[in-house]
Design a protein around this nucleic acid. Structure first.
Length: 111
DNA sequence: TGCGTGACCACGG
DNA sequence: CCCGTGGCCACGC
């Protein structure tokens, strides 16, 4: 665990709370944690997490509901398959009914 | 120490 | 609608 900075743990913590059948976004997670600048960092953290942690990284998409991170999984269709197995429809790399499936930590975890 | 790059995002032309 | 640009920041070389 090289230099476990706070945001790293914080990001994983939020991602782990995304319910099955729901998805969140890089920007929403960054905003919730106050990582104002970190939409980009969220993606980076998730990428690193794939190597060692059990994190539902497939439940995080970009602000449009696009599966922009799919190429980082073991196969280009793994992310989509995982989501579909949880009841989320994905067409053309995009989450259907994204608005309904969107899980916003700022709302769901409002403290 | 500096530069290019990236699972992002918003804004402008 | 398709770019280009700026912001943000960690990482590798």
């Amino acid at each position: 665990m090289a230099m476990a900075t706070n945001y790293y743990e914080d990001v994983l913590d939020v991602v782990r709370q995304i319910p099955q059948g729901r998805v969140s976004t890089y920007g929403a997670i960054a905003a919730y944690l106050g990582l104002k600048s970190g939409a980009r960092m969220v993606g980076w953290v998730l990428n690193q997490s794939l190597l060692h942690s059990e994190v539902p990284a497939h439940r995080v998409v970009n602000r449009q509901g696009l599966l922009t991170g799919r190429m980082h999984f073991s196969g280009p269709s793994v992310m989509q398959t995982l989501l579909e197995s949880e009841g989320i429809q994905v067409v053309n790399h995009q989450v259907m009914n994204f608005q309904e499936k969107f899980w916003d930590p700022s709302v769901e975890l409002s403290l």
